[in-house]
Protein backbone atom coordinates (compact mmCIF):
# COMPACT_ATOMS: atom_id res chain seq x y z
CA UNK A 1 0.00 0.00 0.00
CA UNK A 2 1.58 3.30 -1.02
CA UNK A 3 1.34 6.46 1.02
CA UNK A 4 -1.21 8.29 -1.07
CA UNK A 5 -3.65 5.42 -0.94
CA UNK A 6 -3.15 5.14 2.83
CA UNK A 7 -4.34 8.73 3.13
CA UNK A 8 -7.30 8.11 0.87
CA UNK A 9 -8.26 4.84 2.61
CA UNK A 10 -8.02 6.47 6.01
CA UNK A 11 -10.25 9.34 4.96
CA UNK A 12 -12.78 7.07 3.29
CA UNK A 13 -13.09 4.90 6.38
CA UNK A 14 -13.59 7.95 8.52
CA UNK A 15 -15.93 9.81 6.21
CA UNK A 16 -19.39 8.49 7.25
CA UNK A 17 -18.73 9.02 10.96
CA UNK A 18 -17.09 12.38 10.31
CA UNK A 19 -20.06 13.67 8.31
CA UNK A 20 -22.53 12.77 11.05
CA UNK A 21 -20.30 14.11 13.80
CA UNK A 22 -19.82 17.37 11.98
CA UNK A 23 -23.54 17.66 11.22
CA UNK A 24 -24.81 16.98 14.73
CA UNK A 25 -22.00 18.05 17.04
CA UNK A 26 -19.66 20.59 15.49
CA UNK A 27 -22.04 22.41 13.21
CA UNK A 28 -24.74 22.86 15.90
CA UNK A 29 -22.11 24.07 18.37
CA UNK A 30 -21.07 26.83 15.97
CA UNK A 31 -24.64 27.49 14.89
CA UNK A 32 -25.51 28.00 18.54
CA UNK A 33 -22.85 30.65 18.81
CA UNK A 34 -24.06 32.35 15.63
CA UNK A 35 -27.72 32.27 16.61
CA UNK A 36 -26.94 33.63 20.04
CA UNK A 37 -26.06 36.91 18.30
CA UNK A 38 -29.31 37.03 16.33
CA UNK A 39 -32.86 37.79 17.35
CA UNK A 40 -35.58 35.17 17.38
CA UNK A 41 -37.52 35.29 14.10
CA UNK A 42 -41.16 36.07 14.74
CA UNK A 43 -43.79 35.50 12.07
CA UNK A 44 -42.77 37.45 8.97
CA UNK A 45 -39.94 39.17 10.85
CA UNK A 46 -36.64 37.37 10.08
CA UNK A 47 -33.77 37.06 12.53
CA UNK A 48 -31.53 40.12 12.68
CA UNK A 49 -28.12 40.69 14.16
CA UNK A 50 -28.49 41.96 17.72
CA UNK A 51 -24.93 41.55 18.94
CA UNK A 52 -24.75 40.83 22.64
CA UNK A 53 -28.37 41.70 23.37
CA UNK A 54 -29.28 38.11 24.22
CA UNK A 55 -26.42 37.94 26.68
CA UNK A 56 -27.39 41.33 28.09
CA UNK A 57 -30.91 40.01 28.59
CA UNK A 58 -29.51 36.91 30.25
CA UNK A 59 -27.58 38.93 32.82
CA UNK A 60 -30.79 40.79 33.64
CA UNK A 61 -32.89 37.63 33.76
CA UNK A 62 -33.44 36.63 37.41
CA UNK A 63 -34.58 33.16 36.36
CA UNK A 64 -31.23 32.55 34.67
CA UNK A 65 -29.37 33.38 37.85
CA UNK A 66 -31.72 31.30 39.92
CA UNK A 67 -31.34 28.35 37.56
CA UNK A 68 -27.56 28.69 37.56
CA UNK A 69 -27.59 28.80 41.36
CA UNK A 70 -29.87 25.76 41.46
CA UNK A 71 -27.50 23.92 39.17
CA UNK A 72 -24.58 24.78 41.43
CA UNK A 73 -26.42 23.48 44.50
CA UNK A 74 -27.52 20.46 42.51
CA UNK A 75 -23.89 19.73 41.59
CA UNK A 76 -22.68 20.26 45.15
CA UNK A 77 -25.48 18.10 46.48
CA UNK A 78 -25.09 15.20 44.07
CA UNK A 79 -21.40 14.94 43.22
CA UNK A 80 -19.61 14.43 46.55
CA UNK A 81 -22.38 12.26 47.97
CA UNK A 82 -22.69 9.97 44.97
CA UNK A 83 -18.90 9.60 44.66
CA UNK A 84 -18.48 8.80 48.35
CA UNK A 85 -21.32 6.28 48.23
CA UNK A 86 -19.94 4.76 45.04
CA UNK A 87 -16.55 4.24 46.68
CA UNK A 88 -18.12 2.71 49.76
CA UNK A 89 -20.26 0.40 47.64
CA UNK A 90 -17.30 -0.65 45.53
CA UNK A 91 -15.17 -1.48 48.58
CA UNK A 92 -18.03 -3.53 50.01
CA UNK A 93 -18.86 -5.33 46.80
CA UNK A 94 -15.17 -6.01 46.10
CA UNK A 95 -14.77 -7.62 49.51
CA UNK A 96 -16.07 -10.95 50.62
CA UNK A 97 -19.17 -9.87 52.51
CA UNK A 98 -22.13 -12.24 52.74
CA UNK A 99 -24.54 -11.85 49.81
CA UNK A 100 -22.10 -9.97 47.61
CA UNK A 101 -24.06 -10.82 44.46
CA UNK A 102 -27.27 -9.40 45.88
CA UNK A 103 -25.52 -6.27 47.08
CA UNK A 104 -24.02 -5.62 43.68
CA UNK A 105 -27.39 -6.17 42.01
CA UNK A 106 -29.16 -3.85 44.43
CA UNK A 107 -26.64 -1.04 44.02
CA UNK A 108 -26.43 -1.29 40.27
CA UNK A 109 -30.10 -1.77 39.33
CA UNK A 110 -31.04 1.95 39.32
CA UNK A 111 -28.40 2.48 36.64
CA UNK A 112 -30.11 0.31 34.03
CA UNK A 113 -33.58 1.73 34.59
CA UNK A 114 -34.82 4.71 32.57
CA UNK A 115 -34.59 7.94 34.56
CA UNK A 116 -38.08 8.78 33.39
CA UNK A 117 -39.42 5.55 34.89
CA UNK A 118 -37.65 5.83 38.22
CA UNK A 119 -38.74 9.45 38.42
CA UNK A 120 -42.34 8.23 38.27
CA UNK A 121 -41.68 5.81 41.08
CA UNK A 122 -40.04 8.50 43.18
CA UNK A 123 -42.85 10.90 42.38
CA UNK A 124 -45.22 8.42 43.98
CA UNK A 125 -42.77 8.02 46.85
CA UNK A 126 -42.87 11.78 47.53
CA UNK A 127 -46.63 12.21 46.96
CA UNK A 128 -48.42 14.33 49.59
CA UNK A 129 -50.57 12.57 52.18
CA UNK A 130 -50.34 8.99 50.90
CA UNK A 131 -46.82 8.64 49.44
CA UNK A 132 -44.46 6.32 51.28
CA UNK A 133 -42.36 9.15 52.67
CA UNK A 134 -45.45 10.86 54.08
CA UNK A 135 -46.56 7.61 55.66
CA UNK A 136 -43.20 7.15 57.33
CA UNK A 137 -43.04 10.72 58.63
CA UNK A 138 -46.69 10.44 59.64
CA UNK A 139 -45.98 7.32 61.68
CA UNK A 140 -43.16 9.17 63.41
CA UNK A 141 -45.65 11.90 64.29
CA UNK A 142 -44.04 14.56 62.07
CA UNK A 143 -46.23 17.18 60.39
CA UNK A 144 -47.30 16.58 56.82
CA UNK A 145 -45.14 18.20 54.17
CA UNK A 146 -45.46 18.60 50.41
CA UNK A 147 -41.96 17.52 49.50
CA UNK A 148 -42.03 18.33 45.80
CA UNK A 149 -44.43 21.22 46.10
CA UNK A 150 -42.35 23.24 48.50
CA UNK A 151 -39.61 25.62 47.39
CA UNK A 152 -37.39 24.56 50.24
CA UNK A 153 -37.38 20.83 49.52
CA UNK A 154 -38.09 20.33 45.79
CA UNK A 155 -34.45 20.57 44.69
CA UNK A 156 -33.29 18.38 47.56
CA UNK A 157 -35.78 15.71 46.48
CA UNK A 158 -34.28 15.76 42.98
CA UNK A 159 -30.79 15.54 44.44
CA UNK A 160 -31.72 12.41 46.37
CA UNK A 161 -33.10 10.76 43.24
CA UNK A 162 -29.96 11.63 41.29
CA UNK A 163 -27.64 10.26 43.95
CA UNK A 164 -29.69 7.08 44.06
CA UNK A 165 -29.51 6.72 40.28
CA UNK A 166 -25.81 7.55 39.87
CA UNK A 167 -23.98 5.99 42.81
CA UNK A 168 -24.28 2.46 41.45
CA UNK A 169 -23.02 3.61 38.05
CA UNK A 170 -19.93 5.23 39.53
CA UNK A 171 -19.43 2.17 41.75
CA UNK A 172 -18.64 0.20 38.60
CA UNK A 173 -15.63 2.37 37.79
CA UNK A 174 -14.28 2.03 41.31
CA UNK A 175 -14.90 -1.69 41.21
CA UNK A 176 -12.93 -1.99 38.00
CA UNK A 177 -10.08 0.03 39.51
CA UNK A 178 -10.08 -1.98 42.74
CA UNK A 179 -9.90 -5.22 40.82
CA UNK A 180 -6.86 -4.00 38.92
CA UNK A 181 -4.92 -3.33 42.12
CA UNK A 182 -2.57 -6.22 42.88
CA UNK A 183 -3.59 -8.10 46.04
CA UNK A 184 0.08 -8.27 47.00
CA UNK A 185 -0.05 -4.55 47.86
CA UNK A 186 -2.57 -5.31 50.60
CA UNK A 187 -0.38 -8.19 51.75
CA UNK A 188 2.75 -6.08 51.80
CA UNK A 189 0.90 -3.43 53.81
CA UNK A 190 -0.41 -6.06 56.21
CA UNK A 191 3.07 -7.41 56.81
CA UNK A 192 4.26 -3.90 57.57
CA UNK A 193 1.51 -3.67 60.18
CA UNK A 194 -0.92 -1.34 58.39
CA UNK A 195 -4.56 -1.61 59.46
CA UNK A 196 -7.60 -1.46 57.20
CA UNK A 197 -8.15 2.26 57.61
CA UNK A 198 -4.44 3.13 57.21
CA UNK A 199 -4.27 1.00 54.09
CA UNK A 200 -7.38 2.69 52.65
CA UNK A 201 -6.11 6.18 53.44
CA UNK A 202 -2.50 5.81 52.42
CA UNK A 203 -2.64 3.23 49.64
CA UNK A 204 -6.10 2.55 48.18
CA UNK A 205 -7.44 6.09 48.08
CA UNK A 206 -4.33 7.58 46.41
CA UNK A 207 -4.25 4.69 43.94
CA UNK A 208 -7.91 5.33 43.11
CA UNK A 209 -7.28 9.02 42.50
CA UNK A 210 -7.31 8.74 38.69
CA UNK A 211 -10.65 6.93 38.92
CA UNK A 212 -12.00 9.54 41.30
CA UNK A 213 -11.07 12.29 38.87
CA UNK A 214 -12.61 10.41 35.98
CA UNK A 215 -15.81 9.86 37.94
CA UNK A 216 -15.75 13.48 39.06
CA UNK A 217 -15.66 14.72 35.48
CA UNK A 218 -18.52 12.42 34.57
CA UNK A 219 -20.49 13.55 37.58
CA UNK A 220 -19.98 17.19 36.66
CA UNK A 221 -21.16 16.54 33.11
CA UNK A 222 -24.18 14.62 34.38
CA UNK A 223 -25.12 17.38 36.76
CA UNK A 224 -25.61 19.62 33.72
CA UNK A 225 -27.06 16.96 31.46
CA UNK A 226 -29.59 15.06 33.58
CA UNK A 227 -32.94 16.80 33.58
CA UNK A 228 -35.35 13.95 32.71
CA UNK A 229 -36.55 13.66 36.30
CA UNK A 230 -37.36 17.36 36.48
CA UNK A 231 -39.80 17.00 33.61
CA UNK A 232 -41.62 14.26 35.50
CA UNK A 233 -41.36 15.34 39.09
CA UNK A 234 -41.47 19.12 39.39
CA UNK A 235 -41.41 20.74 35.93
CA UNK A 236 -38.86 23.09 37.43
CA UNK A 237 -41.26 24.34 40.06
CA UNK A 238 -42.43 25.57 42.35
CA UNK A 239 -41.40 28.99 41.05
CA UNK A 240 -38.28 27.64 39.31
CA UNK A 241 -36.98 26.36 42.63
CA UNK A 242 -35.93 23.07 41.05
CA UNK A 243 -35.15 24.14 37.47
CA UNK A 244 -31.65 23.40 36.15
CA UNK A 245 -29.87 25.09 33.26
CA UNK A 246 -30.64 22.51 30.57
CA UNK A 247 -34.26 22.32 31.70
CA UNK A 248 -34.49 26.09 31.43
CA UNK A 249 -33.01 25.93 27.93
CA UNK A 250 -35.64 23.35 27.04
CA UNK A 251 -38.41 25.58 28.37
CA UNK A 252 -37.13 28.71 26.69
CA UNK A 253 -36.68 26.95 23.37
CA UNK A 254 -39.73 24.71 23.22
CA UNK A 255 -42.27 26.34 25.51
CA UNK A 256 -41.63 30.06 24.91
CA UNK A 257 -40.07 29.41 21.46
CA UNK A 258 -37.35 31.98 22.07
CA UNK A 259 -34.60 30.14 20.21
CA UNK A 260 -32.14 33.03 20.21
CA UNK A 261 -32.17 33.34 23.98
CA UNK A 262 -31.99 29.54 24.23
CA UNK A 263 -28.85 29.66 22.08
CA UNK A 264 -27.24 32.18 24.39
CA UNK A 265 -28.11 29.96 27.37
CA UNK A 266 -26.69 26.94 25.54
CA UNK A 267 -23.42 28.84 25.10
CA UNK A 268 -23.19 29.15 28.88
CA UNK A 269 -23.77 25.42 29.20
CA UNK A 270 -21.10 24.70 26.58
CA UNK A 271 -18.66 26.93 28.43
CA UNK A 272 -19.31 25.01 31.65
CA UNK A 273 -18.77 21.70 29.86
CA UNK A 274 -15.59 23.12 28.34
CA UNK A 275 -14.34 23.81 31.84
CA UNK A 276 -15.06 20.17 32.69
CA UNK A 277 -13.03 19.21 29.61
CA UNK A 278 -10.04 21.13 30.92
CA UNK A 279 -10.42 19.27 34.20
CA UNK A 280 -10.30 16.03 32.27
CA UNK A 281 -7.06 17.08 30.60
CA UNK A 282 -5.52 17.71 33.98
CA UNK A 283 -6.77 14.28 34.94
CA UNK A 284 -5.08 12.64 31.97
CA UNK A 285 -1.79 14.28 32.96
CA UNK A 286 -2.12 12.90 36.47
CA UNK A 287 -2.98 9.45 35.30
CA UNK A 288 0.27 8.96 33.41
CA UNK A 289 2.14 9.26 36.68
CA UNK A 290 1.55 5.66 37.65
CA UNK A 291 2.13 4.00 34.33
Amino acid sequence: MNRASAHIHGWLLLLPAAVLLAAFTHFPAFATLWHSFLSTPKGARPAVWVGLDNYQGMLEDPVFWQVLGNNLWFALGTIPASIALALLMAVWVNGKLAGRGFLRMAYFTPTVLPMIAVANIWLFFYTPTYGLLEQVTGTLGLPSHNWLGSQSTALACLIVVTIWKEAGFFMIFYLAALQSISPSLAEAAAIEGAGRWYYFRRVLFPLLMPTTLFVLVNAVINSFRLVDHIVVMTRGGPDNASALLLFYIYEVAFKYWDSAYASALTMVLLALLGAAALLQFAFLEKRTHYQ
Binding site: S184, E187, A188, A189, I191, E192, P206
Partner: peptide, 28 residues
Amino acid sequence: PARRGIAMVFQSYALFPHLSVAENILFG
Protein backbone atom coordinates in the same frame (compact mmCIF):
# COMPACT_ATOMS: atom_id res chain seq x y z
CA PRO B 1 1.29 -11.14 59.73
CA ALA B 2 2.33 -7.86 61.35
CA ARG B 3 2.90 -9.51 64.74
CA ARG B 4 5.06 -12.39 63.57
CA GLY B 5 8.33 -10.44 63.38
CA ILE B 6 8.81 -11.04 59.68
CA ALA B 7 9.55 -9.09 56.54
CA MET B 8 8.64 -10.23 53.07
CA VAL B 9 9.74 -9.65 49.49
CA PHE B 10 7.09 -10.45 46.88
CA GLN B 11 7.59 -11.89 43.43
CA SER B 12 5.96 -8.79 41.94
CA TYR B 13 7.85 -6.64 44.52
CA ALA B 14 4.47 -5.15 45.60
CA LEU B 15 5.86 -1.61 45.62
CA PHE B 16 3.26 1.11 46.18
CA PRO B 17 3.17 2.82 42.77
CA HIS B 18 2.11 6.23 44.09
CA LEU B 19 4.86 6.45 46.74
CA SER B 20 8.49 7.41 46.16
CA VAL B 21 11.33 4.98 46.80
CA ALA B 22 11.95 6.57 50.20
CA GLU B 23 8.27 6.41 51.16
CA ASN B 24 8.06 2.81 50.05
CA ILE B 25 11.04 1.82 52.17
CA LEU B 26 9.75 3.78 55.15
CA PHE B 27 6.16 2.54 54.88
CA GLY B 28 6.39 0.04 57.72
